[in-house]
């Protein structure tokens, strides 16, 4: 019945939560652009912002099974809030970031009451609807948002009052990367907490959760609000580092893009979304000479390929390959697909 050696209950759980060498290598690699590609730091900052946004979606979709086609709404609230704070005379980035996170968190908390009550297809429609609603509202309230033309006159003050945002993106990437890392560590902590376990329970079998005494609705409201804060931070970073915000910050396209990045990289594994963001953003940059329809042709092809051949995304495929190699090395039958 058991081939596994019997160990106490704690060792395995502790091993799961431990930082791995590959993780440390990953974060060290995020510093490489400073050395290897100093001309691409602006792009790198956009990648870091996208990665932060994907991380937010991974918390709800990958870990909790809450599907969203309107996640850009929270990104947009953060972006516009940070922009508006700056336009109205306060360009200090860190406090602007916090204010934006609070604003998107509030919107996330309010909408989470609707979100928590639905699942599956209904949830797709509701998140889509909420996203479109907000976009139209932002368009209509052009006195506030600048409407179609976007918000004019954003100016971001130097970081800590000293470090200017330079044209080469040095500060922008440092800033975005630092925020990404801090939020990532927090997200990782959430995943390995009892609450993170409850989220996985909801993803695996939400209907069973009440039968073990869980209030799924309140769990979902909590993680949805946290995810909204993170999405808002990503939005704020974008408007602060580019000093522009337009309606596309909360458009459907952005919601779709973030979903694609997550699926490409692999949902429910924290790093999957980050890798998806890198692949997607870098590929888009490389193809930017082509016209947009062409770009989406290739993205469409890539998506179909990944979903067909790597159902758990790029990272899922890598993990599977690593398992196979390890299993082969141990000369034991391989563990089945992740």
């Amino acid at each position: 019945m058991t081939t596994q050696t019997i160990s106490g209950p704690h060792a395995v759980l502790q091993a799961q939560a431990r930082w791995r060498a590959a993780e440390i290598a990953f974060w060290l690699a995020t510093l490489l652009p400073f050395v290897l590609a100093p001309d691409y730091l602006v792009l790198a900052s956009q990648v870091a912002i996208a990665a932060l946004f994907v991380l937010s979606l991974d918390l709800i979709l990958g870990f909790s099974g809450i599907i969203s086609l309107g996640h850009a709404a929270y990104f947009g609230v953060g972006a516009y809030t940070a922009g508006l704070v700056s336009v109205h005379g306060w360009g200090e980035p860190l406090s602007g970031l916090v204010i934006a996170g609070i604003a998107s968190g509030i919107w996330g908390y309010v909408t989470s009451f609707i979100i928590a009550r639905f699942r599956h297809l209904a949830l797709i429609m509701i998140t889509l609807g909420l996203g479109l609603l907000l976009q139209e509202a932002a368009n209509a309230a052009s006195w506030l948002t600048g409407g179609f033309d976007g918000l004019q006159g954003i100016h971001t003050w130097p970081l800590f009052g000293k470090i200017d945002f330079d044209l080469y993106g040095y500060t922008a990437y440092s800033y975005a990367l630092a925020v990404l890392f801090v939020v990532f560590v927090a997200a990782r902590r959430i995943i390995h907490s009892p609450f993170g376990l409850a989220l996985r329970g909801i993803r695996e079998n939400g209907a069973r959760m009440p039968a073990i005494g869980a209030s799924t609705h309140s769990h979902i409201r909590t993680i949805y609000t946290i995810a909204a804060v993170i999405a808002g931070l990503a939005g704020a970073l974008l408007s602060q580092t580019t000093e522009t915000v337009s309606l596309e910050a909360l458009g459907f396209q952005r919601s779709a893009d973030v979903l694609v990045m997550l699926i490409l990289g692999g949902a429910g594994r924290l790093y999957g979304g980050l890798i998806g963001a890198v692949v997607y953003m870098v590929a888009r940059d490389q193809f930017s000479g082509l016209n947009p329809q062409f770009w989406y042709f290739w993205i469409g092809l890539l998506l179909i390929g990944v979903v067909m051949f790597l159902p758990n995304g790029i990272l899922g495929g890598l993990a599977f390959a690593a398992e196979r190699l390890k299993a082969a090395a141990r000369k034991r039958p391989p563990v089945s697909a992740p």
Binding site: L13, A17, G201
Partner: peptide
């Protein structure tokens, strides 16, 4: 996809009212 231990630990955490804490690790 949860292990048997994770599943039952989750149920214990729910009963003891600690399944809402997200700032302390499960371990």
């Amino acid at each position: 996809h949860l292990s048997a231990l994770e599943s039952v630990t989750l149920a214990v955490c729910e009963r003891r009212g600690v399944a809402r804490t997200w700032w302390r690790p499960l371990t």
